[in-house]
Design a protein around this nucleic acid. Structure first.
Ligand SMILES: [Zn+2]
Ligand SMILES: [Zn+2]
Ligand SMILES: [Zn+2]
Ligand SMILES: [Zn+2]
Lengths: 154, 154
DNA sequence: GTAGACCTTGACGCCGACGTCAATGCCAGG
DNA sequence: CCTGGCATTGACGTCGGCGTCAAGGTCTAC
């Protein structure tokens, strides 16, 4: 199997496969003409890498799994090194999730408070004895309502 | 206040402040000698940026807040544009958290399964009629047990 | 023999938020 | 006058995981 076919079968690109090779993750034998030659085992290695990357693993973190597979073990996670990566990743995930939950709380609170303040301003604005409008809340001048575009620096 | 003092008071670096200026986030007046001149308002703007960045906002996402503050509004989130960013961020956070939870589940399951398989191997290895040891699970040769180092590619 | 599809290596681009020089300017103290 | 500490602009480096050419070699089909 040559690089194009492997890429296609794995749903990736040749560039990616060559990149993995430079990392030593997926070395390839060479045919007489210099073309890279892969087999079904390489496809399995590649699938292992893809699975882990889908989990958010960095390429370096997939190395123990790949080397384990290349050692002929039944699965990529048959070795302690792979399990260690799993555990480290779980810890990272927990930490990250906890962090995000905290942030979510805070941002949610900020939004709620800001909405409350905004509603209060609207109320006083439409109230019978409405005081001076210190800020017009409709379509705004200095801010542009489009959040997609926003560059002024040159 | 010059750039060094502002950086120190905000707990950041001069490089960061100059970078923000190139983005138009934190423009500075200039003294006669060309030095950047900041005041307490700039410090407040900067603190707003830092708060949002601590939440994981990108710099561009802080722009509506900063512009709102510079418009003289009571808070950075007194404008609809800022609220829109809040809501977008909340959605992103929810999506990300859900994703991470899913990944966590899967990785946890993988780990559990791998540990089970490993224990099974250990058991058969130490069992009375233990068959041929197809893999020694102790300190390993082809894999290196250190997860911190791991580079072979040149 | 020649088009065209495949392959090779090499090298630069990208994204975000800066870090890290380098060369030079401004100003106060001894 | 000189030293030293601050300032200026400019430009390149970093990290990860590739994308995107560019210039050429190889093989197959017609
Ligand atoms: Zn193994
Ligand atoms: Zn307003
Ligand atoms: Zn505003
Ligand atoms: Zn083993």
């Amino acid at each position: 199997m040559r690089i194009g076919e492997l890429a296609e079968r794995a749903g990736t690109t040749t560039r990616t496969l060559r990149y993995y090779e430079t990392l030593g993750l997926l070395p390839a034998r060479r045919a007489g003409n210099g073309y890279r030659a892969y087999d079904e085992d390489d496809l399995r290695l590649l699938r292992q890498i893809q699975t882990l990357r889908d989990f958010g693993f960095g390429l370096e973190e997939t190395r123990p799994f790949v080397e384990c597979l290349r050692a002929g073990h039944p699965a990529g996670d048959s070795c302690p090194a792979s399990l260690a990566v799993y555990r480290r990743k779980l810890a990272e995930l927990d930490e990250c999730i906890a962090h995000l939950n905290g942030v979510r709380q805070q941002v949610g609170a900020q939004l709620a408070e800001a909405e409350r303040a905004m509603a209060a301003l609207e109320a006083t604005a439409t109230a019978p004895g409405g005081p001076g409008p210190r800020c017009e809340l409709g379509p705004h001048d200095p801010h542009d309502g489009d959040e997609a575009t926003g560059r002024r620096a040159g």
